[in-house]
Design a protein around this nucleic acid. Structure first.
Lengths: 131, 131
DNA sequence: CTGTATCCTGTATGATACTG
DNA sequence: CAGTATCATACAGGATACAG
């Protein structure tokens, strides 16, 4: 045998696909879009309104990537005007829980982050003035 | 009063600091570094070894940013050779739980992601050959 | 050992206009 | 409404050399 130890899939191993999985949601929009779809299936336009600041391009691009990886499904009703609905897949649903927890953490703790940042920057300025 | 409705901090609001909080950990390295420190406090070198593929530059840079936002603390023992230890702050500790859940999700589900990606790409190729 | 300073490249992201 | 195409830019990320 070439390798002895068990593969032990780990996100800390850069050659492991688990790392890719994490990088899939490491961008600026995937977490938000998945969280939005966790509330309810939505159309392109509705997502645009729900996720503040996302451009049409990034929304489409991110949705494609999530669909490609099986986290969401795309229902094209093939009518005119177009009606396309996105929703979490079963696999995506298993992710949503952890993601929503992150959202809640952010919404609950951002004041502490802001305060810490301010303290840090103030300390920086002090030491820069007296080098 | 200018505004009527409650502020309702939400990650979906691009003007809310909660969004910044989320973007703090949206990069390629913050989640991994925080997860590593959740296992145990570590020195710069140990982190380099633990987090596969991280460069010295990105490690230092990310550690600074996490320290700035109060998620980790930096203990410089002021000796030579240098000995600097990083560890999760109380605030960082509250994040670690959600992060580790994400890691576990990635390590558990990446095969399904890989499979979905392969299916999607195969379907793409089929429709490209017959447009 | 820990960290800084450059230089350099690709990707992510964004603004805008156009199509079915 | 949903999506594509194009152009432009900022920034993340990596390689390397050097410093305290």
């Amino acid at each position: 045998m070439a390798k002895r130890s068990k593969p032990e899939p780990s996100v800390f191993d850069e050659t492991c696909s688990a790392r890719h999985a994490l990088e899939l949601i490491a961008g600026k929009w995937p977490m938000l879009i998945l969280s939005a779809l966790a509330e309810s299936p939505m159309r392109h336009g509705a997502l645009m309104r729900r996720v503040g600041g996302v451009s049409q391009k990034m929304l489409t691009q991110t949705l494609r990537d999530l669909e490609r990886n099986g986290l969401i499904t795309r229902q094209d009703h093939q009518c005119v005007p177009p009606h396309v609905e996105y929703e979490l897949s079963a696999l995506g649903g298993t992710l949503a829980g952890a993601l929503i927890e992150l959202d809640r953490w952010a919404e609950h703790n951002f004041p502490q982050l802001d305060a810490a940042r301010e303290r840090f920057d103030a300390a920086q300025r002090r030491s820069k003035r007296r080098p």
